[in-house]
Write a protein that binds this DNA or RNA. Structure first.
Length: 107
DNA sequence: GGTCTGACTAAAT
DNA sequence: GATTTAGCCAGAC
């Protein structure tokens, strides 16, 4: 797994997230071997280069915590819906089904 | 090298 | 279910 910087690893994993799916910060962190770095993952997204689909990364409850960072509107939600992810009340519907586990799918 | 911050998580209340 | 507390670690100053 790739690795140079934690950020690079996060970016790479996020880029590997298939359309219509989403994952959580903790899942990415755990995949990188650092289950306690959930915050770092989110922070890495805060400075994502732009080619990183950060809209597919949400918190453990499937809630669009990054929505505010994408914009004051529902831009993040719109992106997810455009990929086939149903978003209701700022959170992903059927989260357990949409959830993409990098540690399992990517392995 | 100490301190603050942050798009988190989980457990406790 | 909502709020609070504490734990976690990498970067910026």
């Amino acid at each position: 797994m790739a690795g140079t910087d934690f950020f690079s690893d996060v970016y790479q994993v996020v880029r590997l997230i298939p359309g219509g799916r989403a994952t959580s910060y903790g899942a990415i962190a755990a995949c990188l071997g650092a289950p306690g770095n959930a915050r770092i993952v989110g922070w890495a997204m805060a400075g994502c280069p732009g080619d990183v689909p950060a809209h597919r990364v949400v918190n453990s409850k499937g809630q669009l915590s990054a929505k505010a960072r994408f914009g004051p509107g529902n831009e993040m939600q719109h992106l997810l819906e455009a990929e086939g992810v149903q978003v209701v009340n700022d959170r992903i519907a059927d989260w357990g089904r949409v959830f993409w586990d990098p540690a399992a799918e990517l392995l």
